[in-house]
Design a protein around this nucleic acid. Sequence first.
DNA 1: CATGAATGAGCTTTCATTCAT
DNA 2: GATGAATGAAAGCTCATTCAT
Lengths: 208, 208, 208, 208
Amino acid sequence: MTEREDLLVGNFPIVPKQKRAQQKRKALLESGRILFIDKGYEQTTAKDIAAHAGVATGTFYRYFSDKRQLLMSLLEDRIEEFFPPEPSWSTPDPVSLLAKMLEEHGKRLNKLGLHRVLQELLPKDPELAEAISAARRKIQTRIYSGLKQAFEKGWTWKDLDFDTVSWSIMTLVENAHEKEVQGGGHVDYYQLAKVICRMVFPPEVHKE
Amino acid sequence: MTEREDLLVGNFPIVPKQKRAQQKRKALLESGRILFIDKGYEQTTAKDIAAHAGVATGTFYRYFSDKRQLLMSLLEDRIEEFFPPEPSWSTPDPVSLLAKMLEEHGKRLNKLGLHRVLQELLPKDPELAEAISAARRKIQTRIYSGLKQAFEKGWTWKDLDFDTVSWSIMTLVENAHEKEVQGGGHVDYYQLAKVICRMVFPPEVHKE
Amino acid sequence: MTEREDLLVGNFPIVPKQKRAQQKRKALLESGRILFIDKGYEQTTAKDIAAHAGVATGTFYRYFSDKRQLLMSLLEDRIEEFFPPEPSWSTPDPVSLLAKMLEEHGKRLNKLGLHRVLQELLPKDPELAEAISAARRKIQTRIYSGLKQAFEKGWTWKDLDFDTVSWSIMTLVENAHEKEVQGGGHVDYYQLAKVICRMVFPPEVHKE
Amino acid sequence: MTEREDLLVGNFPIVPKQKRAQQKRKALLESGRILFIDKGYEQTTAKDIAAHAGVATGTFYRYFSDKRQLLMSLLEDRIEEFFPPEPSWSTPDPVSLLAKMLEEHGKRLNKLGLHRVLQELLPKDPELAEAISAARRKIQTRIYSGLKQAFEKGWTWKDLDFDTVSWSIMTLVENAHEKEVQGGGHVDYYQLAKVICRMVFPPEVHKE
DNA sequence: CATGAATGAGCTTTCATTCAT
DNA sequence: GATGAATGAAAGCTCATTCAT
């Protein structure tokens, strides 16, 4: 991760040591986050962010080399938060556990709020796209191995296609959050968890 | 749909009558499509499109009032193509049929290629977002009633949550295409179809 | 006048001989006049004029080298109409005669309607400005000599300043029309004529 | 007037506080004035003005929302200066006083120099036209009542038409300045004053 | 001759970024 | 360090004029 982060964020203005400066930096980050979410990345200008943070335009550039870098800093170490943790299957009630996890993940994404902004950027920023892609692959790999373990314990469908199923789980989990945002009715996380479990386990295992 | 489409596209420069002009218009549309896909919507300028089509900037504005309208023309009457047809369950081999449908849908999307562009635009263009949303709702409604019929015939899980499952199917189908694009290996449409069927039918029905 | 006109109009497209062509030319002139008056010179495009005249854009340029030349043709031989004829003083009732002349001049200007357009152009077109200026000088000279004759007959004030008075008459007459247009109440031409006569004749002459 | 002025000028970029900025603003205003007078309003671009003021294009837009607003700032609180003060008749030597007033007004107009520019704008800018019109009405009303007072004191012609005469005075005074500009020889303000007085007073009053 | 599509210079305006104070 | 005025490249769009048909 570290290498990738460095790549993304660059090492431009050394994170300043003073308290004051730290506060300004934080204010800028927070203003950036708010405005990006509110108006979109492209529609938000450096001037806007500076004004919202109560500093001068020029100050923006003391802390960030440009708008992109601010966004990257916002994302720093958090890209993984955009993706769900791997579900745990070795539990008496995987459906409830999964439901809970889904809900928490949804909340986390809503709190970050940058989901949309990322989508806006992907076409323009191959580097970011690659970072996202890497994070996604990483998670999917974890899900994959989780599935494999469950398989080895004989819990899953015998013909489980790890690849397809792990991808399906990822996809549903990632999009559950969007569904909620779009106001297309709230997601019933429990039902979704059930559906996911059906993709993985044959019915007889459920009773276990 | 037709009314909404008209709304989106407007009736700006009447589609010209001459052959030549038609060719230029087509060239512009095609150049727009290529550049939008290649560089993203925001990064593509009217000038770029004109240059790529081998015409002068002003010519662009003969045929389209602006970039957005070109995109809308590109989308005209095609919004529904972005969404899958509803799967049919009443068939001897729903998995294969579904797999075939998924593949065809993926091909169609790849041919259009505008999937990403749409995503870039959605946050900024509420009108488009609404059109997309309507199309999506329409399809999902169809899937929903398909499920209901299957349920009434007693084929599905007894506790099927139509809403959650129809949404899950939509989501997987919509994203299958993306998986392919991202180069994460080809999608195994057959496996995906199997997973979807497992969300819907209990195993004993599969044998039927 | 001829030389000046040639200067203004240029000798670009030889006035065409055919009837058809003549009609198109006239239609263009008339459309130009209407649109110039309605929207102003700058706001009217060659395309507008052609469309209004029911011909193609290119046709415009067959008859006129450009927008300016159309305007000049509109003005051709008419610049003098923008200015009043010299008043005649040797008449039993100069006030009534003058009043009548003022009214007729006002009507003529309203009919042409290009007064405003000229004003719009003067700053940009020194050549036109010069032509206007020359025409004005010409009229003023006539008024001047009319006054001189009246003076020599002993009718006017003994200390009449020909220059000032002829200029004043010109100015009032030229602006009377504008007053009417601006809707600042109709001009009472008879009262205006009386005022002008008082500038010229002492009261005892009036009784004559 | 103040309200109307505020309306015209808007309150776009708050007049900046720093000295430097004030200078740039002034430089832009002055450059605008010069170029408007020299080339006309329409022929002058924002870029021209910026270049003439020695600043970048973008700087223009820091201080003015557009060309029009610059002109409006140039006019701010000055519209009345374009019109003469009302003449005073109750004085031992109204002719000389009037002559002096005319000359001063002429000088003031020449200093502003924007007379022509206004004329260019009037047809296109109804708001400005209304402001001008209001100012003109105001002055004319004052002249009107001045005449009425003189009439009541028995100084004027018995059949004085206040309306026509006040309009005539306005018109002559407004245009006197133009005469000078057009290089038709300097205006003899004294002679003009005499002419105006003859419009108002019968000869026997002059001796008083 | 007529047509109207095509051209491209040029105008307005915005905004990321710099730099004098 | 902080400030915010200044910069100028670049985007969107218009329109006088040309030219292939």
